[in-house]
Nucleic acid binder design. Structure first.
Lengths: 201, 201
DNA sequence: TAAATAATGAACATAATGTTGTTTATTTAT
DNA sequence: ATAAATAAACAACATTATGTTCATTATTTA
């Protein structure tokens, strides 16, 4: 009795995931049946149930697996202080976009397609939120704010994800660095100034 | 043969919708079966199929019905120029929040709950987007921008919806006017300035 | 090579969908 | 007021997917 897992188990699990990814791209999550997965993975339908409770359970496992890669990349982003947030946001955004550009089809299926998985967006948002929150604590200490911290954080994450989704939906129309820089400029200075429009007080 | 609809039809349709709304709040959209709806509406399951193709079709009808009310409210918001966008955003936000506060349970079920309906958010975003786009055209003409107009619009809508969802999720923690004002300040001047933190160039 | 265990295959119970055809009840138009 | 039109009810059916059970076969590990 060793720590190793039976080779058959590893093989089966991998087949299931590959099949699942392919099918998501082909027909969307909702339309997939367990039988579809079994057929594609070339296993018995029963075997599926030896590894996953049901379809949502499989989805969860897969999302976590893929997002842990994103999370690792984001966690490594340095916090550049003074004024920390602007460059940090830019770095994190660029990191995320670059990661996505390496897995476009999957992210497209999860975030953009008709049959997209909204939980996936929620999980991504949490990764971003954790990172920003961490930076916030580091840089901010506990000086009072003119507005709700929760509101501010929600604002940052929402706009962040909005740009990310826009970027994917439009087929990566700008270089990752350029999109990241436009985003951080808007967030830091306001949309009018960032757009080059004079702001009357 | 008149323009009027048979009273039985009107009665049935109304029962179906009421039943549907109740069930969404009780168990979430996905868990609802046609039989559930029929039972609650006290009609035969067959009768359901006389009025709707299937569950998604019913959902669509209901969302459109409810969002048209929101749309009407938003469309009526005036565009205050100079600098138009800031106060317009604030007005639209306040209008939306006030509308939501009159239908909290439904919006909560559609936007926040575990079994929320992501299409609903997308439809709301389109309403906001249309409004902002209209204002943009009015105020902006065709002077060149320092950043992509599409990106800017996506940014505005995403942050807008983020605040809206935050507000609902946290049980309407601020007066609608206050939340609207904080939002417009962030968007107009940037998050650091809005938060009261000095921005070093 | 024996023991452990993963995968298969077949069967079954359950639940939901969507359709068809007939009958009953209600509504509208004359 | 009544006949014609039609909505709703009722019952039956085919189809599809889910999740479980159990005996058998094959593979892997120790």
């Amino acid at each position: 009795m060793n720590g190793k897992t039976d080779l058959r188990v590893l093989r089966t699990r991998q087949s299931i995931r590959m099949a699942f990814y392919e099918l998501i791209e082909e027909k969307g999550y909702e339309a997939i049946t367990i039988q579809d997965i079994a057929d594609r993975a070339m296993i018995n339908r029963n075997t599926f149930y030896l590894h996953h409770q049901n379809k949502p359970d499989l989805l969860d496992t897969c999302m976590d697996e893929l997002l842990s890669e994103l999370k690792n990349a984001v966690v490594l982003c340095p916090f550049n202080m003074s004024p920390f947030h602007i460059s940090t946001l830019e770095t994190v955004m660029q990191t995320v976009l670059e990661h996505i550009s390496r897995n476009t089809t999957f992210y497209y299926a999860m975030l953009i397609e008709e049959n997209r998985i909204y939980q996936f967006r929620a999980k991504m948002e949490n990764i971003i939120k954790d990172k920003l929150n961490e930076g916030w604590i580091l840089a901010q200490g506990n000086s009072p704010l003119a507005l709700s911290k929760e509101l501010l954080l929600e604002y940052l994450v929402s706009s962040f994800m909005g740009i990310v989704m826009w970027w994917i939906k439009n087929d990566l129309p700008l270089p990752a660095g350029e999109a990241a820089s436009q985003f951080s400029r808007i967030v830091a200075y306001g949309h009018l100034k960032a757009a080059g429009i004079a702001v009357g007080e």
